[in-house]
Amino acid sequence: MTAALRPVLDDGPVLDHDHGHDHDRALERALDAASAVVDPELPMLTLADLGVLRDVTVGEDGAVVAAITPTYSGCPAMAAMRDDLVRELHAAGFADARVRVVLEPAWTTDWITPTGRAALAAAGISPPGPAPRRSGPVPLRLTPTRRAVRCPRCGSDDVVVGSEFGSTACKALYRCQACLEPFEHVKEI
């Protein structure tokens, strides 16, 4: 099992020792295979680092079920994620591999792992800050969202948001006033 997946799977019964060593090893193999799959649109990130891979289980019969949560309702990469997971699990020797969708709780950028954040920054994409928390009605914001964003190229904090919507649903467009380069920021949800 990779370190990246531990926080994801710590919530559930991961290694069931009653099932013995074979089951544990099968689960580790399944976890390794599933957690190596990268996001189709952010290929510097694994699905585990993105927080999209929520769970991997191996049944008594050896069937593997991987659970994924969409980042956005219309995320067009879900099908590719599903296919890539099934393909990698097949390649790891699991003839029966399935992917199920988990809609709740909804994906949040807080699930992106530290490794994932570092990978984003290294690829020139500004990683998200903490997701907004609220109690009561959703506040209307008529002024640009304030974020502590730094240019991933030159490190300057003299940046302006160009649009809250970018090349994929999860990113906003920024421009650095210091080095004049545009860059993308994974917006907090």
Binding site: Y72, S73, L142, P144, T145, I189
Partner: peptide, 26 residues
């Protein structure tokens, strides 16, 4: 539960939509 889950996700998305439109309106 399905409708509640779809709605929870939608709230996050619509927050951005409403802010976008509100700012442009202004």
């Amino acid at each position: 539960a399905v409708l509640a889950a779809v709605a929870a996700k939608g709230v996050k998305e619509l927050t951005y939509h409403r802010d976008f439109a509100g700012r442009w309106f202004l």
